[in-house]
């Protein structure tokens, strides 16, 4: 077993274990902090797949942006409204339907995974992905890229509009 395989299993277990904590934890803040390790584990998967730029974007956007916002939201709401951030017991109907949906999804995914003809080949190590991603975004995928940025801009303007001080 070489170092890369060892690293893969380590991070895979890390990701799955903390994902389980996210789902099963009663305390929302504990779930949010467990999400930190899950995101980090996913970033390591990207590293092992030689997608360095994607891995770092994952850390930057999900941990540095989204997760901090989630935690801020949770902390501030509990302190202002005094509502306990604990989830209740899951009802039986929800539990059964969620279980069936999960089983179906898992069965489909495993089925697809085992029946697909994977054409594997030795791929030479990729040196830099940032340049290829940049070129791709500004040439072939320009429309999608610009549409996404317009959507984000509209979201920012909308958020500022909702949050602004209302004229009295």
């Amino acid at each position: 077993m070489n170092l890369v395989t060892l690293a893969f299993y380590f991070f895979a277990v890390l990701t799955l274990a903390f994902a389980a904590v996210v789902v099963f934890s009663r305390n929302i803040l504990h779930a949010a902090f467990a999400l930190l390790f899950t995101f980090f584990g996913v970033a390591s998967m990207y590293v092992l797949l030689q997608a360095d730029f994607l891995a770092i974007s994952q850390i930057m956007i999900y941990i540095g942006g989204i997760l901090i916002l989630i935690i801020f939201g949770v902390i501030l709401t509990t302190n202002i409204t005094g509502v306990e951030v604990k989830s209740d017991k899951t009802g039986r109907l929800q539990l059964v339907s969620a279980g069936i949906a999960t089983l179906l999804l898992a069965a489909t995914l495993i089925g697809v995974m085992t029946t697909t003809q994977w054409n594997t080949a030795e791929v030479p190590a990729v040196d830099a992905t940032a340049e290829a991603i940049g070129t791709g975004m500004l040439t072939r995928y320009l429309l999608a890229f610009e549409t996404a940025s317009m959507l984000l801009l509209i979201a920012i303007v909308g958020a500022a509009f909702i949050a602004r001080k209302k004229p009295v």
Binding site: I56, M60, T129, A130
Partner: peptide, 21 residues
């Protein structure tokens, strides 16, 4: 690594998480 400077900025957010924690 080729995205070293980007990495430094990204990894700083883990410290921020620690501070909130």
């Amino acid at each position: 690594i080729n995205v070293g400077l980007f990495y430094v900025f990204a990894i700083g957010s883990i410290s921020a998480m620690g501070i909130v924690m």
